[in-house]
Simulated assay, not measured.
Amino acid sequence: MTLTSRKTGLAGLATLGVSALLLAGCSAAPTGTNTTKAASNFLPCMVSDSGGFDDHSFNEIGLQGLQAAAKSLGVKEKHVESNTNDDYAPNIDSLLGQGCNLIVTVGFLLSSATDAAAKANPDVKFAIVDDGLDNEGATGKDGKPTGDGKVDVANGKPILFDTAQAAFLAGYAAASYSKTGVVGTFGGIQIPPVTIFMDGFVEGVQYFDKVKSKSVKVVGWDVTSQTGVFTGGFAAGVEAKTAAQGLLDQNADVIMPVGGPIYQSAAEAIKDKKNGTVMIGVDADVYNTDKSVRDILLTSVQKRVDSGVEAVVKAAASGDFNNTPYVGTLKNDGVGLAPFHDYASKVDSNLSKEIADIKAKIISGDIKVTSAATPK
């Protein structure tokens, strides 16, 4: 087995580019996968991005999916955590050296390292969360992805999510709950897996305004110009708290931070404000993963990375692996809106029914949710 060579400048986002998620022929979530054919020595493995497996977000739930699949198959698993972008290629190499049959990489930032490893090791299966593996993508002058939409490695499978659909529901809920008439969102890094949330959120607010004849303002992201507030990374810290504070200063009383642990700093800013502002989580149902923010959590936009990873691992173990993208949607329950939990009695009494009706219309196609980053 040949270990992949580390690509020059992996740590720089410029070398990563922006992979297009506009993919043709995407598959629905696999169901009823036959795992009886799984070899007892099948070894599924995973590499996190720099957010780590304790991010209460997509790395953590991705690992849960890997572990659930391994338990169901009766096999062991291996996983390794990345601390910086420089760790991606070496971590993949380490797992290759340990005989992994399938390596799942978690996050768009691992695109370059995953693509290189898959090409250098055609006998090993790879899957990546949030990247299309379409010639590693590219970015045009407008900042939009310009990849060709075709998975360029036979042994690589994208695991993608149309989170704009679920974020649309969150935007509608945010607009309904807002007392100030201003809601906001900000992101970690301006890449498609982040902006797809923000696009859907804004469109959901706009839909609320249309059907309710209201005028709720969104700060932090402009869909038309694709410009907004970003921290430059996914770590909690001063940058994330400052970004959240900027939205609060514009009178936003519902905020959706998009980018793993950055929500923790947004929560600090909200609690410092003590004015009744609430937060919307992303990826996991943050109510279940982080009890410390329950008191300010309205709901969460769920990207069920665990379900996608589990399905892909089981398919690979049973010999059903292919490079057709897995795409999570509202229809196949790959994305969704979490319950309102402690805020169930505080939202409008008709909101849950309205959300259910909107969800049904999105699934049927009566409501179109669009984003430059939507998987197709």
Rank of each mutant, 00 (worst) to 15 (best):
K241W: 01
S300E: 14
G228A: 11
T277F: 06
Q245C: 10
A266N: 06
Y326S: 03
D348W: 00
G233P: 04
D283H: 14
A316N: 02
L351H: 00
Q250V: 10
G260V: 13
I296T: 07
T299K: 14
T324P: 07
V312Q: 03
N251H: 11
F230K: 00
S318A: 15
Y326F: 12
D249M: 13
T231E: 02
D306H: 03
K359E: 01
S352H: 03
S292Q: 09
K273H: 15
G336M: 12
K291Q: 11
L297H: 10
A338H: 04
V229F: 01
V223Y: 10
N350H: 12
A236F: 04
E268G: 05
Q264G: 11
N275V: 11
A244N: 02
A316G: 04
E239D: 15
K273C: 11
N323Y: 09
S265F: 01
G334Y: 11
G336I: 03
A360Y: 05
V309F: 00
G276N: 09
G319C: 10
G259E: 00
Q264A: 12
S265Y: 01
K353A: 13
K241F: 01
H341G: 03
A266R: 05
I362C: 11
D320P: 02
N332P: 09
K331S: 15
V278W: 00
A244M: 04
N288Q: 13
D357Y: 07
H341S: 07
A338E: 03
D253V: 04
V229W: 02
N323F: 08
V238R: 03
A356D: 06
A243R: 08
D272C: 13
